[in-house]
């Protein structure tokens, strides 16, 4: 068992994984898990881990140290990484020795940086997940939902292999927001007036400061919904809901399971990572896609990712 110490936690440092057993939502547990599942899976792959094991999700600049020899990997939008003050590569497996420190600094405040560790982080399991869920006060060392603090120590059940892996340029996630996010329309879509539907897809929305792991509140052209009573209903990840002020909120990993605001549809799963890596002030547009086309696109992207995950170390081996 190795130990990883939090030297400096930054703005918020959490342990996240692929999320809870999905049936837990039936009794009110939020889905939980990494906000940017793509980057999360990639750092696990770089460490030769199963893709769903816990990793660190941090905001702002943070520093860790280890008391054992292990492989780690860092990923996220525009991140700089130092191993003992020496710059090292992002999206690259890194071999740390006992006593080494790893410092991570994203260029833009608010993006999420993921750090995978070669092995499995030892923490209490709630509904099949080790994710820390601050909102519910669940997960983490004391199972109280507290984010990681300076001086916290996490036990790691290490694995023995130290892979040398890296992502090629075209394999790195494209976080840019130039292209619209795909939206599978549904839920109450047909009840919005036609011109309100068009207005939504023709408008640009800005990410506000009011963003959390539950959802991102956007600001722009308000969208009207005809007065009707809606009963609370199940909320899928990426659902775009409109409270009374008509400003969209996109629901994310730690969303409540039920809610009664009208919804236009859901941002397609494969585009959610771009939204969750957006920061206040960024602008976003949406485009409609049928669920059949969205599924086809998902399957295609999934196959491309699997090609990375199934490739041999030699193909992705480091030069040195």
């Amino acid at each position: 068992m190795g130990e990883i110490s939090i030297v400096e936690p930054g703005l918020q440092l959490l342990v996240v994984d692929a999320g809870r057993n999905t049936h837990a939502q039936e009794i009110g547990f939020c889905a939980s898990g990494a906000l940017d599942q793509l980057s999360f899976e990639l750092v696990n792959w770089l460490c030769d881990n199963a893709l769903d094991v816990p990793a660190l999700e941090g905001m702002g600049e943070f520093t860790l140290s280890v008391n054992f020899t292990t492989v780690v990997a860092v990923g996220g939008p525009s991140v700089s990484v130092w191993q003992n003050d020496k710059p090292v590569d992002v999206w690259h497996s890194l071999l740390l020795q006992a006593g080494d420190t790893l410092r991570v600094k994203p260029q833009r405040m608010g993006t999420k940086t993921y750090v995978g560790v070669g092995g499995v982080i030892d923490l209490p399991v709630v509904q099949g997940s080790k994710s820390i869920v601050t909102r519910e006060g669940v997960g983490g060392r004391n199972n109280d939902g507290a984010s990681l603090k300076k001086g916290d120590v996490l036990g790691i059940d290490l694995h023995e292999h130290h892979p040398q892996r890296l992502l090629k340029e075209h394999e790195k996630p494209d976080y840019t927001l130039d292209k619209p996010l795909d939206v599978v329309v549904g839920y109450q879509y047909e009840h919005f007036d036609n011109w309100q539907q068009q207005l939504f897809f023709a408008s640009e929305y800005e990410v506000t400061n009011d963003i959390s792991r539950m959802g991102y509140r956007l600001k722009g052209q308000p969208i009207a919904y005809p007065e009707t009573d809606l009963y609370s209903e199940g909320i899928n990840c990426g659902a775009i809901q409109f409270p009374g002020d008509g400003q969209p909120i996109v629901m994310l990993a730690d969303r409540q399971t039920l809610g009664g605001y009208p919804k236009m549809g859901c941002v397609a799963d494969y585009d959610l990572y771009r939204l969750t890596q957006a920061v206040p002030g960024d602008t976003i547009t949406f485009q409609s896609i049928s669920s059949d086309n969205a599924r086809a696109k998902w399957l295609l992207r999934h196959r491309l990712e699997e090609r990375i995950f199934e490739s041999e170390d030699t193909e992705h081996g480091a030069d040195d």
Binding site: T22, H23, Q25, E26, Y231, S232, E233, G234, I235, N236, T257, L258, D269, R295, W298, L299, H302
Partner: peptide, 18 residues
């Protein structure tokens, strides 16, 4: 079927995309 989330008058069925 990944989850069956019941609301008051609705049932959300989540499924394995693959």
């Amino acid at each position: 079927i990944k989850s069956l989330i019941a609301g008051y008058d609705s049932l959300l069925v989540l499924f394995d995309l693959q």
